[in-house]
Amino acid sequence: MVMSCRDRVLAAINQETLDRPPVAVFTTCDTIGMMKASGASWPEAHSDPQKMATLGCAQADYFGLESVRAGFCLTEEAEALGCPIDMGTSHSSPMLKGHRNKYDPMKKIYDEPNDLPDIDVFLNTKRVKTTIEAMKIMKKTHGEKYCVVGGNTGPFTLCGHLLNTENLVYSVWTDPKEAQKWVAAIAPYCKAFGQALLDAGADIVQMSEPSASTDILAPSDFPIQSGQFVKHALGDLTGHTILHICGDSAPIIPFMFDTGVTGISVEEKVPPEKAVKIANKRGALVGNVGCAMPLYKGTPQEVAKAARASRDAGFNVISAGCGVPIGTPDDNIRALVKAITG
């Protein structure tokens, strides 16, 4: 009997032995090609559950990727918590236009995290609700054959959106307890959103925590400033979970697994063999074909070569190393799939 895409992805993230790994993008993948093919485009697809579901399923419908995924950016939680957002256009993603709270470590002026909305209100606000509703639709239309993946934002990253990331990072050096207090206050919102995605039909929650990358935080700071809160918000969920962190995550791969997630997603900045060695089968490895090069700017041949390198190294799920750029050529995504599925 032919294995369904859903069964293959679930087996892969549980590190079962397979004839080949699945090709699936758990980070964002909603390209211009997918928008044209599906008829569901940005910016409407950020706020309309049906359009979000249609575009999220286009990765399987039009490119043969082996999972379906929504939402499409890392601003929906910040918006639901009160940050002003520019919704962008068909070719540009939503952008944060300001912050919610005063947090100035240079002047030692800190708001307290005591006026945040009720979690139930948060879950029913704007695009957080949209994404939860989209999960229900995707589960209904594609859930039998494909894994449904719901994306959300990590607590340190979301906290940076509310407070100003640069100021939050500054305070990691000067007032680390203040930073931790805020991330601790935000983590329950991340957890509630993740659980709501699962309850709505998601098989996997993929959390992106880019502001905790080694380009920003010292690896030794990761467990205290981000990891312990990711454990609460993602690792403790009752479902499959994938943690994505951008950049050269090699020094923090063990800490990423310490959060209790099912698997981790890493960029091409970690050579595939090195990632596999460090991961040491502690969980699934997802990645790590480069997004700018070769997916966005390279050739199909270069994409195929990178995909095979990740497969040969032993990645469990072959995927883009980060969010797939919106302008990525259709042929490059097809090459990613074909290199693995044949």
């Binding site: 990072v169 990691v172 050096w173 000067t174 080694t214 700071d221």
Partner: peptide, 9 residues
């Protein structure tokens, strides 16, 4: 040898 928080301060 050092990371962003120190650089910012």
């Amino acid at each position: 040898k050092i990371y962003l928080p120190q650089v910012l301060v």
